[in-house]
Structures are given as structure tokens and as C-alpha cells.
Amino acid sequence: MAKNMELHVDEFNIAHLKMNDVENKNIFSNDFIRGFLAAMDDLEAKYKPHAMILSGLDSVFCAGAEKDTLIDLSNGVIDVKDLLMSERLVNAEYPIIAAMEGHAMGGGLVLALCSDIVIAARESRYGAVFMNMGFTPGMGTTTLLQGLMGDFVANEMMYTGKRFKGSELLNKGTNINYILPKKDVMPKALDIALQISEKNVKSVYLLKYTLSSKKKKLLIDARLQEDMMHKLSFAYPETKDIINSFYAD
């Protein structure tokens, strides 16, 4: 197991996958994506979990793409590895609970969109920040964000790139299952997972298969549109400068 991921399956047959790249704060480096996919391979090779709780660091659930990848894209080097993570989650046979104690930005938020149940923290921020960097949203955001946030809040998030505070989203009335004080996020995730663990695992898998078909289609639709928009928007000459200024410290 790569050190950027922690995976274990507990006595209730609940898988716990923690994205734990402390050094890089859970950005999509190549190592991170490899580690994530390897952890899911490992889980599925050895177990048939009732459910999986996907969590991140206390401060950052997942921060999305790294600058180098975006610059590569703006140079015409096409790299779609991050999409493998969306697909992997959507195609999982078991339900996934995203327990977002920390912030989730861009592709990091998409990991929650590809989950089945989502818990956010009042104190943390959540944003579809793609347009802040001059290019259009990716990884399935354009078709999946509406399901979690509602059509019009999703529009606002994508057009403005604003990083909404959990407490702000609570007032907006989204479809996020729970928006709780950070310390209550993991206990709530565990409670939901325990309820699922009481069900017949074979029926849980059947239900997941049915419920996930819509999302699988949405992700395929997104991919066609988003790839085309990325080819255009990453090629705009100004995009590289906007990316560089966005990541300036």
C-alpha cells in the first residue's frame, strides 16, 4: 500500500479508505492517483465490503489537480488519468460514503459526486474552481454536480468558481446528506455505514448496480462534452498565464 493511502476493512465489513498524502495535501499527483487506484484494486481483490467510507485529511479532503498536470494540458499533452478515479468510484460494486472533513476543490469535489452518500463539514469549503483557472470544468462535474447541489446552485458554483463554506451550503438547501461540525463527520459516516452493514450484502450490491446506472451514463456524457471543451479551453493562449497566477504563492 502506498503511503499516501490508508485502507482497512473493519469487523463490520466496512472498508475505510483514507486519502492521506500529508505532504502534498491530497492533490492529484501521479503517485496519488496510482495509490488511489491500487488501494481500490487491493480492496476488491481481497474483500466484498458492504460499503466504503472515503475520507481525507482533517484540513483537506482532496484538492484536485496539480499545477504541473494543468500546465501539461495547456501544452497539449493530454493526460486523463484523473478520470480513472471518477470511473472507478462510479463503477464500484458497493456504496461509497464520502466523509469530507476538510476542503474539497475541483476534481477533489468530483470524488464526492461519484459517491453515493455525502457528508460535509460546516467549517470547510467546497468549490468547483475550474473556471478560476481559465478552463471549463472536468472529471464529470458538468453532469454530476447538479445531482448533489441542485441545478441552480451547481450553475453558480461552476460559473463563479466560488469556494462555498459548508455552513453556507447548509443554508442553500443542497442535496448533501449532512453538513455537520467537522468533528461529527466521521461518526455520522460510520453510523450510516453500520446501518448498511446490517443488510444482506448481495442485495446491497444489486441495489448499487441499479442506482449507479444513471451516474455511469452521466459520466460518459460528461466525458464527451468535457474532453471537447478542454481541448478548446486549455488551448487558449491566456489559460497558461491564468493557471500560473492562480497557483502563485
Partner: peptide, 8 residues
């Protein structure tokens, strides 16, 4: 404030 609060 956390870092993203400050940016906002």
C-alpha cells in the same frame, strides 16, 4: 479563518 476563508 483557515487558508481558504482568507482567500474568500
Amino acid at each position: 479563518a483557515n487558508s481558504l476563508d482568507m482567500i474568500e
